[in-house]
């Protein structure tokens, strides 16, 4: 089976002012980042803050062009934003002046889908994220968790092949977060999307991912790719947290901390 997404030698650097020398220094958000994602795969990227995880998604979305390297989805080179990718952000980014229904239909309007069909599609995705009955509410009337459900429905409604998620559950409380993780896994299993999910939470990565990409900071490169070959659901009330699960968590924890230590020593 061909790969869904091919990231080839992506590099993106910024010039930032060093606090010690006050000189401009080159900061590599991403350096020679190469990754293949197969169809229907759930890939989670973890790394210290500022390691270029979000930059990676911005480039994947087509909003920014990397300094060098290329991205291909289904063999097609990515040249800009398009409806073959859905983007879910940490701060929901709902349109405050649109009802929930109209928010979910935004991408469908761009696709020029007739009104009646739009209504049917949005209804089914609002149902999918469990917000039936909230169609005509405005975002300000919803809690954080509900807003993120709307954002997910909005990103799924126009049927993208790939879902890009930038720390989508970082702003909600722990309980809601677990619930949303469960829901996301079941939506993923139902819709068979390819997901690239960025987080700084190791537990979240182990709970969700087929493969966890562990990143280093400056330069933003791949430290290691850890396949999580655990049956789903990985956390349940009955079974609790398995030893295998904890082993993955501590292994990734170790990788991340090693990464930070080596970075510290490189700076000294």
């Amino acid at each position: 089976m061909p790969n869904k997404i091919e990231l080839n030698n992506i590099s993106q650097a910024y010039y930032i002012k060093s606090s010690e020398t006050n000189k401009k220094v080159k900061f590599y958000a991403l350096k020679d980042f190469t990754l293949s994602v197969s169809d229907g795969e759930f890939v989670v990227v973890v790394g210290p803050s500022g390691c270029g995880k979000s930059t990676l998604l911005d480039i994947l979305s087509g909003l920014f062009k990397a300094n060098s390297g290329s991205i291909a989805i289904d063999g097609q080179i990515v040249n800009g934003p398009a409806l073959d990718r859905g983007f879910v952000m940490q701060s929901y980014a709902l349109f405050p002046w649109r009802t929930i229904k109209k928010n979910v239909e935004f991408g469908l309007e761009l696709k020029k889908i007739p009104k009646k069909e739009r209504g049917e599609i949005s209804a089914s995705f609002i149902e999918l994220v469990g917000l039936h009955g909230y169609e005509n509410r405005y975002p300000y009337e919803l809690s954080g968790g509900m807003k993120q459900r709307v954002a997910i429905a909005r990103a799924l409604a126009y049927d993208p092949k790939v879902l890009l998620m930038d720390e989508p559950f970082a702003a909600v409380d722990a309980q809601t977060r677990e619930k949303l993780q469960d829901e996301l896994v079941s939506i993923w299993q139902k819709t068979n999307k390819t997901i690239i999910f960025v987080t700084h939470s190791i537990e979240e990565a182990v709970t969700l991912a087929d493969r966890v990409v562990v990143m280093t900071e400056n330069p933003g490169t791949i430290k290691e790719i850890v396949p999580i070959n655990l049956p789903r659901p990985r956390i349940s009330v009955e079974a609790g947290i398995s030893e295998a699960y904890s082993a993955f968590v501590s292994r990734i924890w170790g990788l991340l901390h090693n990464a930070e230590e080596s970075f510290e020593s490189a700076r000294l």
């Binding site: 934003p81 398009a82 983007f87 980014a93 349109f95 405050p96 991408g107 761009l110």
Partner: peptide, 9 residues
């Protein structure tokens, strides 16, 4: 919000 709209093309 602008970013969300742009990301959808």
């Amino acid at each position: 919000v602008l970013k969300a709209a742009r990301a959808m093309g």
